[in-house]
Design a protein around this nucleic acid. Structure first.
Lengths: 153, 153
DNA sequence: GTAGAAGTCTACATGAAATATAGATAAAAA
DNA sequence: TTTTTATCTATATTTCATGTAGACTTCTAC
């Protein structure tokens, strides 16, 4: 299960990417629009900034902006900002060279061998889907549903 | 990240499957062999029994046995016993019809659409790898490493 | 039929992590 | 220099994973 942080982060970014005609956003506005606790969102946006996904300006007229275009932001990079890793077990961490504390022989650990396949499958998906792709999927789904309703009426 | 429960469960099952010439195992022996806290392992094996993966007999000469052959036990079924689900978000649960508490419009939620792909990729792997496969991967790796050492000497 | 071996159940302890909240501080613009 | 906005530090709360203790039940062998 991914954390609320990741979900809130994705929601905030999706909101920013989808709102045309604005490039700077106030924490309070995003929080309100997406139903995210404001103080919690503060910390989340800060994390995204520290990971190079958002940029910010203080003072009047300031706020947060996307550091790159939605088509250049992968879901993998966003989720990693919060989860630290996509690895299903510690010994497969992408960022630290660490082994699972309980493992007796990491070299031949069957769990690790199986989970390595899972890890690369997950990474292959999340690193090849961008924020723009996610919005497009969502929009496509919305269109499909509106049409169904139209026909029904 | 998968839980310690899942890892300990997999380790215990792997131990039972790999130990030839025995079909009934004492909790204490498994705990000792795999370095798992005994009382914790009790609860874990009980979960596996309740999920039809192990069977047990009480009394002298009793113990736990695999309910099916290792080739008939998928890693997916084992992990699900502990995690309840393989879903990366609540709204994709395989077992409950539930939505994510924070979701404003689940029908067009981009996160859900992307994570659905992740969920099926993970399930495709774990439901097609058996306990026997896992042992075989492990053994193959062990052989490979022993050979390397032999050559080095 | 009873003694002891083994699994089963209930309850709780503990610690860490996720999820927030409060309030002070710093920077920028007008 | 006042207002607006992000940023930082600290802390509260809750939940969950991990693990322990001890009583209880069931079974087998003798």
């Amino acid at each position: 299960m991914i954390s609320m942080r990741s979900k809130y982060g994705l929601k905030a970014l999706a909101y920013m990417a989808r709102t045309k005609g604005k490039d700077s956003f106030l924490i309070a506005d995003i929080a309100q629009a997406e139903g995210i606790p404001k103080k919690f969102l503060e910390a989340i946006l800060l994390t995204l900034k520290n990971n190079g996904i958002l940029s910010s300006r203080k003072g009047p007229g300031g706020g947060y902006s996307l550091a790159k275009s939605p088509a250049a932001l992968t879901i993998g990079a966003i989720v990693r900002s919060f989860e630290g890793d996509l690895a299903p077990v510690q010994c497969l961490s992408e960022t630290q060279q660490s082994s699972c504390p309980e493992c007796l022989d990491e070299n031949t650990c069957g769990i690790k061998l199986v989970m390595a396949d899972v890890a690369s499958a997950v990474a292959a998906i999340l690193d090849n889907v961008t924020l723009a792709d996610m919005l497009q999927k969502s929009e496509f789904e919305r269109q499909k549903r509106t049409q169904v309703v139209d026909f029904a009426i």
